[in-house]
Design a protein around this nucleic acid. Structure first.
Lengths: 229, 229
DNA sequence: AAATATTTGTACGTATGTATA
DNA sequence: TTATACATACGTACAAATATT
């Protein structure tokens, strides 16, 4: 067992005192000088430990004033939204894909709004992901072909659009919208009742200023998102 | 306009080259030595910039081997789940609270399972959050009174349980489950049709090994979660 | 209102350890 | 085995912000 680095030990010590409630929100931490003395180390080492805590949002630091335990954060859930194909496979099922629509066209007004573009060619895809034979999720996707011309040459009947994009197209930002919808007209495809509640995830993916793709995935059954970390 | 710190500039430069796709996943970054030369600075400064990128999960570093652009991550959505009262107020509505149940009891088998405890006193709450007069969310909550005895003395008819807990009880971890449910028996309280799809969030909150509280919130209407950051 | 002292922020240079291609 | 590249940590210095006097 190798000893943890000193800056890690200091960080964890401070972290533990905050987490236990011993040091409440707003409480002032010992100064770097004090911690130097306590741990008999240099200021850089203390600084590294405390800087890490700033990164985690656990403390705030102000010159001259000191370091303070940050106010308790609002709850944040980090949910992983893997490519549907990967998700199905990670559950031990085989991934099946039915390509329902594959249309290249000039962007309609609707496409322009979704992709935040003025015009240009887009690819309009719809597909049903199956876990084995069972319908798993319905996916509707728009791809901005101006930014991703290579998407024209891909056989999306064989390769999951999400997976291909993830592996081939770098993106900088994504925003998500998670909601509950009623299966409605998609019920037959999803193999559920028309009134069945479905989890729906929408994602807009960006590269710097421009939208690469918009996707809306509707999950059949009682699919749930679990937070990680 | 003050100039950004040098380590920030270096970090952002590297970040930009990764984000633009110029440096693809797996590609080796220049060594610290090379970056020192490029920016005419010390190794500590370069190290600080690259360490920050490790924190963001954008690069990986291996001794002797070098620094590498990390594989494209699966999509992650960070969703903020504020206390319901705060959420309603942030929308400019007044928060109303109807306390539907407030029971202190020894933990039932069901409570024990939800809170992962062997027994002991628990508080069982149910309340309806209103935005003005309109039903907004139905909340059912279990509080582990062994860990949070102070909850006995709070008037939850006046103070939102979530807000009180957030402000008074330090926690270390929380896991969430987000799903779509049908309003069903809660339809009347939520003021929606029985077949209305509802977004449901469950949260288990921990302090170190022990569960502090379990809460299940069912939102009326077409409430959606938006990712941040 | 101004000067001062305190505390963190940034950056330098150096040294040694450690994992590994 | 050895050279490489990152990891940790030392000490120092000055800058910037700000609480206190």
């Amino acid at each position: 067992m190798k000893p943890a680095p000193l800056h890690d030990r200091i960080r964890r010590d401070v972290e533990a005192r905050i987490m236990s409630g011993a040091w409440e929100a707003g409480r002032r931490l010992p100064t770097e000088q004090a911690l130097m003395a306590e741990y008999a180390c240099s200021r850089m080492t203390v600084n590294k430990a405390l800087s890490a805590l700033v990164g985690f949002g656990m403390i705030e630091r102000r010159r001259r004033a000191g370091s303070f335990v940050a106010a308790p954060t609002v709850h944040r859930a980090v949910v992983e939204i893997p490519d549907v194909a990967a998700e199905i496979e990670s559950r031990g099922n085989s991934h099946g894909l039915d390509l329902l629509r594959h249309v290249e066209r000039e962007a309609t007004a609707d496409d322009c709004r979704r992709l935040l573009i003025a015009g240009g060619p887009v690819l309009d895809l719809a597909c049903l992901h199956r876990a084995g034979l069972r319908p798993f999720a319905l996916e509707r996707r728009l791809i901005n072909l101006t930014l991703v011309p290579a998407a024209r040459t891909v056989n999306f009947a064989r390769e999951s659009p999400g997976r291909w994009l993830l592996e081939h197209v770098p993106w900088t930002d994504a925003t998500h919208r998670i909601s509950a919808t009623i299966a409605g007209p998609d019920a037959a495809l999803l193999g559920v009742a028309a009134e069945a509640p479905c989890l729906t995830i929408e994602r807009w993916t960006w590269r710097t200023r421009e939208r690469l793709t918009y996707v809306r995935q509707t999950y059949s059954g009682d699919h749930a998102l679990l937070s990680v970390g």
